[in-house]
Design a protein around this nucleic acid. Structure first.
Lengths: 211, 211, 211, 211
DNA sequence: GATGAATGAGCGTTCATTCAT
DNA sequence: AATGAATGAACGCTCATTCAT
């Protein structure tokens, strides 16, 4: 049995994804859940803290599997995992990317946490890419190029859903395209070794099936 | 001497970029401009029509120079132009990309215009890329790859400012980085012929100066 | 060629009948007419004076034909005329009766004129009825009964359109029923002499054709 | 102790009768009641729902006593009851009739309910008149005449207050006259049996005292 | 005669949040 | 834990009217 707090977060996420966090009132969350507005404020001191708690969930999902990997030591091809994990989270918490800049403007505490997380996430991705370069999966590049490659990856990973949603309302179809965006962004940097890796073949097969 | 209508658009754009369109009230625009709220509504029938008029300006800026090019016939290297124009507009009207998805949710008439424009813009970019491929500036690619390349370009061009703003408030510095994002996205697809072109040398010099 | 002032009155009446005077803005009148709002206020010092001028037209129409009758001297059967004239005016200026009480509340100058007119109209109707009694078309009645008979007649004549419009939007059909309401209200008071009058036969034929 | 909701309805009715529903702002209601505007909207989702709730009260008052009568079986003289009940409600909720047509124009949900109620009310009155005819209190008449008689009765019952208010502001005096309007409207249709009924004598006595 | 920019009070409504119970 | 009444600032917008040109 879920606690009330958990159910609030669940419903809030649902509504945020549907209409945006800024378009969702606390009263609406409480009503949809069938609890009083007073009870909602008993569990969360304000709307921002609901947002922050959801954001913490998001962070956890993003890094859960990646953290498990001891990629510093092992020679593993991480692209597939990265693709799968990031897309999953970015779909589940898609409202975050739809209105991230406004959220940061409106919720100062959220802004702080968001910034901390972003720095950490970017460092993690950079570390991951460096690892892949070291083991020859990705071509080597300058520090500047790495910075830009990572920023482009982050932007594409988080924003492509917004893009496709502008073009079509077929949500399922759109989310599939996310994989293509990331794959083709990364592809020019893949080495021969990568293309010989079974994971890449899996990915290419999967992407082939989308088209 | 500017007309009141122009001044409203000017101040509105300023405030939209500062705090977001959704966070800017019509009363606030009027107050900052020193006119009555009634006067604002004399010039614009509602907030959405202010947004739409600003969006139409944006469209014009985006396409003004590109439209002038008779690129179907001439063999010209367009990347530099494209970089310059799109970045200029995307900075000047940056609020648009910061909250595009929410704007589309909240303003149905804007949504329609936005969608029409987006289709047209993407086709234009595709045509431009095909032209560059034809004249050997960009490596040839499949139709799918072209689609994804264009979508990635659009996403990076419109969203990179949001990204950098999350990391730093140095607005000038951030806007410079936009060029890097697009350049490195495109770079893997440039041919030898491109690298011999003087424009590319200009770009590389410019980018070098940023770092 | 109509003067601007006349055209304002014309369009105002049209809009008042369509949506009510209180739901019609002065701007709307000017726009529909294709003149500036300033020009409208050049011709009328305020909205109330438009209303009053229209009301004066109404009064004129109501009494034009009745005034022509020298009914004090002639033995004439006036019911038919009264039916025809009052219904015609009450249809043409139907907005007046739809919102008379609110108009009186909102427009003090109109209120005064309205009250004066109402007293005069009621006295006229009373005189008319007394004349019909004197010449044996209508059964004699006490002064109280006469008062009430006249008030009922006025209420039915002015309000029946509102009633039928609540039940159906077929405006033409509804206006026909007005005649029935008045006829059946008066009928119990008609004498044998009335029923032998050709006018009554005309009326009965006309009413028969409605059903 | 009245609930806030009840007090809102109470004050709203008071203000509506005083100045008209359309001339009464929600803010005005809240202020007169000494509550915040937010609280008013906590209890009613919009102004229309206040109007509708008041209208439902009106319906209840109109039909409360009439519904209790098992007039299909008993031979009873209903005129007195009808007079008393309808006048009481039409005075208490007099704003309704002062601006009914505008209310219907401005409040679509109210319009629907109003129309349903009107049809039901008219059928009820018709049934009541048919019963009185059956038991010999009212002279028999054709179906058409019945329709018109009922429509005239409804118009007089609901509109006579508006009429008298145009002539005088003595509210109490005016409301007494309502009874006269209805009585004299009905009188021509009363049979000898009616005039022998004690209720009629009561009415005549009451009316006599008014004059 | 005519234009149209400008005013500002007011309207219906929403919303995050508080607090006594 | 939970209820739900209450607050009040703010929002988008309308309207009759004025006035310089």
């Amino acid at each position: 049995m879920r606690t009330t707090k958990e159910r609030i977060l669940e419903i809030a996420l649902e509504l945020f994804n549907e209409k945006g966090c800024l378009n969702t009132s606390t009263r609406h969350i409480a009503e949809k859940l069938g609890i009083s507005i007073g009870n909602l404020y008993y569990h969360f001191k304000n709307k921002e803290s609901i947002l922050i708690e959801i954001f913490n969930e998001y962070i956890e999902v993003v890094f859960k599997k990646i953290k498990e990997l001891d990629y510093e030591k092992d020679e593993i091809f991480l692209l597939k995992q990265f693709l799968a994990d990031s897309i999953e989270a970015d779909i589940k918490y898609r409202f975050l990317h739809l209105e991230l800049n406004l959220l940061v403007m409106n919720f100062p505490a959220f802004k702080k946490i968001m910034e901390q997380h972003l720095h950490f996430e970017l460092e993690t991705i950079k570390g991951l890419v460096r690892h892949q370069i070291k083991y020859g999966y990705i071509t080597s590049m300058s520090e500047l190029e790495l910075d830009i490659f990572v920023s482009n990856s982050w932007i594409i990973a988080t924003q492509n859903a917004s893009y496709w949603n502008l073009l079509s309302e077929d949500f399922i179809e759109n989310s599939k395209k996310a994989a293509l965006n990331i794959y083709f962004l990364v592809k020019p940097y893949l080495t021969q070794k990568s293309f010989e890796n079974d994971d890449i073949k899996d990915i290419e097969n999967f992407l082939g099936s989308i088209i």
